[in-house]
Write a protein that binds this DNA or RNA. Structure first.
Length: 403
DNA sequence: TTCATTTGACCATA
DNA sequence: TATGGTCAAATGAA
């Protein structure tokens, strides 16, 4: 109806540019994490993490791309209007110009959305929060997180008792807000919901609570004592109601019946497990005799680019569910590969834990000579494994080195 | 009429 | 090929 270069598209362009301005402002401010309501269960609260900034930067980049696409569409439409031709009829321009001449800016955006892969791993910051509701009835839903969401899908997930709900920001279309969330009810505790947020809100809706804030990075201040105190705890993997053998390996392979795997990396520096609420349950899945889950109480201390002795935030908080099981996921696979290969080079530990009963198992995947490790179930550690050099203080970095 | 939800189908990824 | 994530038509509620 409206001509392609009409006020509607200009307005769209202005809206996109306003988004970009807002994103740039976020980058500049690095505003403190709002955790006033306590719902954001992540510790620290000093400044946002590197991954957050990356995410905002990517959104900013995306915003520029969109703005340029709209501008080109406006330009093309204006050119077509000036020549008196519409659509693909004739003309001396190239094929691509002919194609775009009949398209509105919205068409371009729509096409761009179609061009974007459905799942672009790591394109947006992703984190999970745990919500608890008062009652366990089947109609219960997690409390309002302060943002307006629109449900766009629901799917039964393999190995999960309850379907997963898919939500996106109500203002996705109006303002291009990329925020989405997935809501998954816990199999074992009907009062618990795990809400995985992806992408920060770029819309201008006024959120009523502090929800949907990405977690802050691992603390980077002088926490040597705390780190040391937490070090042992940080190496634990707690399991609840585990009824089948479980294997820890360093190969990073994911998921197999009766087993779970996670990429084991050397713990050569500080480990700061966030409070329980910050963790997803790593569910053993239905194949483990009625489910149950375990909570990985460790944060792998990979090196960040700026000399911190911690994993990047994504490694601390970014999880993925596969086959009804939750797994820790690195945002950048190369980053994770780097860590895993470092682990291999350092001859990290392998622990094989077998469990017989559906109770709690706590396994500490470190060399037995190095630390005490409380085991409520039998855990075998290869006695031939060398003590990883990362436990040598000389090889440590960051605050833990001085601990 | 508008907007949200439901649900089956489609598609990308591992 | 199995699975998860998204789309979009159908439906319902306000």
């Amino acid at each position: 109806m409206q001509d392609a270069a009409g006020g509607g598209d200009i307005h769209l362009l202005l809206t996109i540019l306003a988004d970009g301005e807002e994103q740039a402002r976020k980058l500049e401010l690095g505003e403190p994490v709002a955790a006033a309501d306590g719902q954001s269960s992540y510790p620290g609260g000093h400044r946002r993490g590197e991954e957050y900034y990356r995410g905002v930067a990517r959104q900013l980049q995306c915003t520029f791309t969109k703005a340029m696409a709209v501008a080109r569409a406006i330009e093309a439409a204006a050119g077509a209007g000036a020549s008196g031709s519409r659509g693909t009829t004739g003309g001396s321009r190239s094929d691509s110009a002919d194609e775009s001449s009949g398209r509105t800016a919205r068409d371009v955006l729509h096409q761009e959305r179609q061009d974007v892969p459905k799942r672009r791993k790591g394109a947006l910051p992703r984190w999970t929060e745990k919500f608890r509701v008062a009652d366990a009835n089947l109609e219960a839903t997690p409390e309002d997180d302060g943002f307006s969401w629109r449900k766009y899908g629901q799917k039964d997930i393999l190995g999960a008792k309850f379907p997963r709900g898919y939500y996106r920001c109500t203002y996705r279309n109006a303002q291009g807000c990329p925020a989405t969330k997935q809501v998954q009810r816990s199999d074992t505790d009907l009062c618990v919901f795990y809400v995985t947020y992806q992408g920060v809100h770029t819309c201008h809706q006024k959120h009523r609570r502090g929800g949907n804030q990405p977690p802050p990075p691992a603390p980077s201040q002088d926490l040597s004592v705390e780190l040391l105190r937490n070090f042992n705890d940080g190496l634990k993997v707690e399991t609840d109601e585990l009824a089948a053998p479980l294997t820890f390996e360093q190969n990073g392979a994911y998921g197999a019946a009766g087993q779970f795997f996670f990429p084991s990396v050397p713990f050569h520096a500080g480990v700061t497990p966030p409070p329980d609420d910050a963790f997803l349950p790593v569910k053993s899945g239905a194949q483990l005799g009625g489910g149950g889950g375990f909570y990985p109480k460790f944060v792998s201390p990979a090196q960040s680019a700026v000399g911190s002795s911690y994993f990047s935030m994504a490694h601390c908080y970014d999880y993925e569910q596969q086959g009804g099981q939750f797994f820790i996921r690195g945002t950048g696979s190369s980053e994770l590969d780097e860590v895993v290969s470092a682990a291999t080079a350092a001859a990290t530990t392998t622990a094989v834990a077998t469990t017989a009963a559906a109770t709690t198992a706590v396994a500490t995947a470190v060399h037995p000579a190095a630390f005490d490790y409380p085991l409520y179930h039998h855990v075998e550690l290869d006695p031939h494994l060398p003590l990883a050099p990362m436990f040598d203080p000389a090889s440590m970095h960051g605050p833990f080195r001085n601990a």
